[in-house]
Design a protein around this nucleic acid. Structure first.
Length: 251
DNA sequence: ATGCCCTATGATATAGGA
């Protein structure tokens, strides 16, 4: 079973790319983030025509997440039941695996209310995930580069949003409290492997990126994982998302 | 090679992204 996470940065602006991805890569499950559309605006017809079901949690203009799947998705929940008005989490059970797709807050800048929201959101996420039973897979845009090797320039990024100690600690605490494995890092110990590259200044072409999209899994899924990687091809060409998909295959 | 910021919005600038 192949499970993919992809921050698509507007599903309507990139529908053609999405359909092409579904047809050529044929993932079993695709978790999408930053739909930037409401449930009503979601291109359900085109996605179903490509052979996928869609569980959607949209929002006007910002955020928005979805789970696309070839297989039935059961027990779907949206957000953490805390009344948060931002559509950031959708979870469902597919093929015996509890799949959580999420879009973590960006945090804007240290010291802002948005940054405090990010830290609180992570603490809440950690507690919420703790009640779940495996096999569990939590994927998405976490908006945190966990370590210096997850940046193209640790000196430049030192203390910056996405890399600051507080958000790295919040991410690490969530991983540790839930005994998760960062699948990509477990299989690719080398640095210089990223999932996001700024649109500006030809950053992708110079591989000046960050690794902020992750697939975290419970122990039973670590042993079942046969491969995991970043689909850099999807970042190329005209009008790409600034994120590349990250995928994992399970036996 | 992979190419030089992008998206959505009661919009012609602004907010947010990362």
């Amino acid at each position: 079973m192949k499970i993919v996470t992809w921050n698509i940065n507007s599903i309507r602006a990139r529908l053609e790319r999405l359909i092409d991805y579904l047809k050529t890569r044929s993932p079993d499950v695709l978790c999408l983030q930053e739909l930037k559309c409401t449930d009503e605006q979601f291109p359900r017809t085109e996605i179903e025509a490509a052979g996928y079901r869609a569980e959607v949690f949209g929002q006007k203009t910002y955020n928005g997440v979805a789970i696309l799947s070839k297989l039935p998705v059961t027990d779907v929940v949206r957000n953490m039941g805390d009344g948060d008005e931002q559509s950031r989490i959708i979870a469902g059970t597919v093929g015996g695996i509890r799949v959580v797709g999420l879009y973590a807050p960006n945090g804007q800048a240290l010291g802002t209310p948005a940054f405090e929201y990010k830290l609180e959101w992570y603490a809440k996420l950690s507690r919420w995930l703790h009640s779940m039973k495996g096999p569990l897979l939590v994927c998405g845009d976490f908006n945190v580069a966990p370590e210096d090797i997850d940046t193209w320039d640790p000196v430049l990024w030192q203390g910056q949003t996405l890399c600051s100690p507080k958000e790295r600690e919040a991410f690490a605490a969530m991983v540790k409290a839930n005994s998760f494995t960062d699948l990509f890092r477990a299989r690719h110990p080398e640095g210089g492997r990223f999932s996001w590259w700024d649109y500006r200044a030809g950053a992708f072409h110079k591989n000046q990126g960050l690794r902020i999209d992750h697939i975290l899994v419970s122990a039973d899924l670590v042993s079942r994982c046969t491969d995991v990687d970043v689909d850099r091809e999807a970042r190329k060409g005209t009008q790409p998302s600034d994120h590349a998909p990250v995928w994992a295959e399970f036996s």
